[in-house]
């Protein structure tokens, strides 16, 4: 936690230009505004800002542009391409799989967010209790969160394997489902297979944020309620839930955003198949661009999805603002 003064080497920059402090130097030179004035703030901010404009904002605008153009293998390398108006949008949205993908995306997001929230909340409440090792165990959950998504996809694909997967055997042993489920190859279950893996991945983050929210509730509120004769359920309903409203709001938005970023699990588990039965918008967009080279189509879906994500993110920012004020 501590570093000693000797290890840091203060003054190297300052001293070179720090003459006898009584010597007279006049106005700030251009160089000095960057060392001492507002120029420093501007410079530091611009580093990030310019980078994000070039590699973050510009690509979005470029996607919008491409969604209005004809972009395929042949025009890929051209700087100017023919404009086609909203033809790409009409084309993409009228494809037979469009409705299905939209539905899947909705199911994937709704199920993931709901289950992550409920399970994360339950776990947060459990580990909120005071017992030896609670903190360490809570931290260990994050191990899942830092794993590469593709590896997680591989592991779940193996665990959910139809013939000799451990999940099927567990279901059989516990008599929950005696026959084998071919999770990935059955169109009826493939989306749920990926959803399960995604719920697993998202639990730690939910748990972490909810734990922080729970820890911020003053203990004396519970004590007061207890004196008023409120039981555990009543305390949860009348104190915990209302006090967690802001956290829950922020968390739902964040979970939606993270779920819409999920790509690796689809790549590792089902490739959106069989026959698009587990395809979602963010994966479909990529498939169109990089597997069928229908870059205009991929861009069009990307534009629609980016709009959704930014909408949700704006809600999130709004809710955190509100939290700070209220």
């Amino acid at each position: 936690m501590k570093i000693s003064g000797q290890t840091s080497r203060p003054g190297r920059i300052a001293v070179s230009a720090l003459p006898d402090p009584t010597a007279s130097t006049m106005r700030l030179s251009v160089f000095d505004t960057f060392r001492d004035g507002r120029g420093l703030d501007a410079l530091l901010v611009l580093l990030t800002l310019v980078y994000l404009i070039v590699f973050g904002l510009a690509p979005i605008l470029y996607t919008v542009l491409m969604s209005l153009q004809q972009v395929d293998m042949f025009t890929l390398g051209d700087f100017s391409r023919p404009f086609v108006g909203f033809a790409n949008y009409v084309d993409v949205l009228t494809r037979p799989e469009a409705g299905m993908v939209a539905r899947h995306t909705l199911v994937f997001v709704a199920l993931s967010v709901a289950c992550q929230l409920v399970l994360g909340f339950a776990l947060a409440l459990f580990f909120q209790q005071d017992f030896p090792g609670a903190g360490i165990m809570r931290g260990l959950f994050l191990a899942a969160w830092i794993m590469p998504g593709l590896v997680v996809g591989g592991i779940w694909r193996w665990m959910l394997a139809g013939d000799n997967g451990v999940v099927n055997s567990l279901l059989a042993v516990t008599h929950l489902h005696p026959t084998k489920i071919f999770w990935m190859s059955d169109p009826a279950t493939s989306l749920y297979a990926v959803t399960i893996a995604n719920i697993w991945l998202g639990i730690p983050f939910n748990m972490l944020l909810l734990s922080v929210g729970l820890a911020a509730i003053p203990k004396d509120l519970y004590e007061a309620a207890q004196l008023d004769g409120a039981g555990p359920v009543e305390r949860f309903r009348s104190i915990t839930l209302p006090m967690m409203r802001a956290t829950l709001g922020a968390l739902v938005s964040l979970s939606v955003i993270f779920t819409l970023q999920q790509f690796d699990l689809f790549a590792g588990m089902t490739q959106g198949g069989p026959s698009n039965s587990s395809n979602v918008a963010q994966f479909w967009s990529w498939q169109l661009s990089f597997q069928t080279y229908d870059i205009a189509g991929g861009s069009t879906i990307a534009v629609l999805m980016i709009a959704v994500v930014i909408g949700v993110a704006t809600l999130y920012v709004r809710s955190t603002r509100h939290e700070q004020i209220g």
Partner: peptide, 15 residues
């Protein structure tokens, strides 16, 4: 992150 002596001597060190 500095001891009392380092705190007190810091300005001198910078000179």
């Amino acid at each position: 992150h500095m001891t009392v002596a380092e705190n007190m001597g810091y300005a001198l060190k910078l000179r």
